[in-house]
């Protein structure tokens, strides 16, 4: 299989890019692949925290780009999975310290060692976004089912099309089925109808995500968490498996139960 560089981006901030990058990387590694997660959010690094690797960082992406160390020296091996690595962002340097061309070069080098290179993009559509996108073969756009997030996702999708990115897929995060059912929130179908790009993942709102972030243990390692399961499904879809999207229904309303019962008659 050809190595794949996949950038996770969003437009609007705080919708779950870093959470998805950390978990997708872990899920792909659990499936036996050689995986590296690259934190391209320079100045605001988070990926190390989500993966529980924050106290192992010696060199970072900027050091690599500026030639202060070799790529290998900056890679941190995961605590649990020996086939999972992190290339951390710099916490202190300027956002423009890494150029798109540097990123392309670094990812080229990573391709020779890894089958998956996942790049966690910063929010926005500025320099950092363009840098994170430059090396991408595939792009995952993350949104939540909220008006502002979907609007920004549409803008990003337009930019990706203009940049000639052919494989652009959507992940909808923090879905609350009960709210959709009450008519209080956009549904997965609504968001898909509006953005009209292929769907790769639907992740429910899940308090386990916060617990996982606090512990520095990605939620996919928790077999009981619904969001972890959803991101594992996402990984399987990336690997080419047909995984149906579970109908994200909340608790069934009396009305639904009744109408189904009547139909059966």
């Amino acid at each position: 299989m050809e190595p794949r560089v996949i950038t996770i981006t969003s437009g609007k901030g705080g919708v779950g890019k870093t959470t998805i990058t950390a978990n997708l990387a872990t899920a792909l590694a659990l499936a036996g692949h050689q995986v590296v997660a690259v934190d391209a959010d320079i100045g605001l690094r988070n990926l190390d925290v989500m993966m529980g690797l924050e106290n192992r960082i010696v060199y970072d992406l900027v050091d690599v780009a500026e030639g202060r160390c070799r790529l290998r020296q900056a890679l941190i091996r995961d605590k649990r999975l020996s086939n999972l690595f992190l290339l951390p962002a710099a916490q202190t340097k300027d956002k423009t310290a890494v150029q798109p061309a540097d990123m392309v070069k670094i990812c080229e080098e990573l391709r020779s060692e890894f089958s998956f290179v996942l790049v966690d993009s910063p929010a926005g559509i500025e320099h950092g976004f363009r840098t994170a996108l430059a090396p991408a073969d595939e792009v995952i756009v993350v949104t939540t089912p909220e008006v502002a997030a979907v609007r920004d996702a549409d803008r990003v999708i337009g930019l990706l099309e203009a940049a000639g990115k052919e494989s652009v897929e959507l992940a909808i995060n923090r879905v609350k089925p009960e709210m959709v059912e009450r008519g209080d929130m956009l549904s997965v179908e609504d968001v898909l109808e509006i953005l009209s790009i292929p769907l790769i993942g639907v992740i429910p709102e899940d308090p386990e995500v916060i617990v996982a972030t606090n512990k520095g243990v990605p939620v996919v390692l928790n077999n009981l968490s619904p969001s972890g399961q959803a991101i594992k499904d996402m990984a399987r879809r990336l690997l080419g498996e047909e995984v149906p999207f579970p109908t994200l229904k909340g608790k069934e309303s009396i009305f639904n139960l009744l109408s189904r019962w009547l139909r059966r008659k």
């Binding site: 008006v147 009450r182 509006i194």
Partner: peptide, 23 residues
């Protein structure tokens, strides 16, 4: 109309303007 329908309609309108403005 419920908040879901309102959100959908507002989004569609925003995107009409956005898509035209950015191209």
């Amino acid at each position: 109309r419920n908040p879901r329908d309102i959100a959908k309609e507002r989004l569609k309108l925003m995107l009409i303007q956005d898509r035209i403005q950015v191209s």
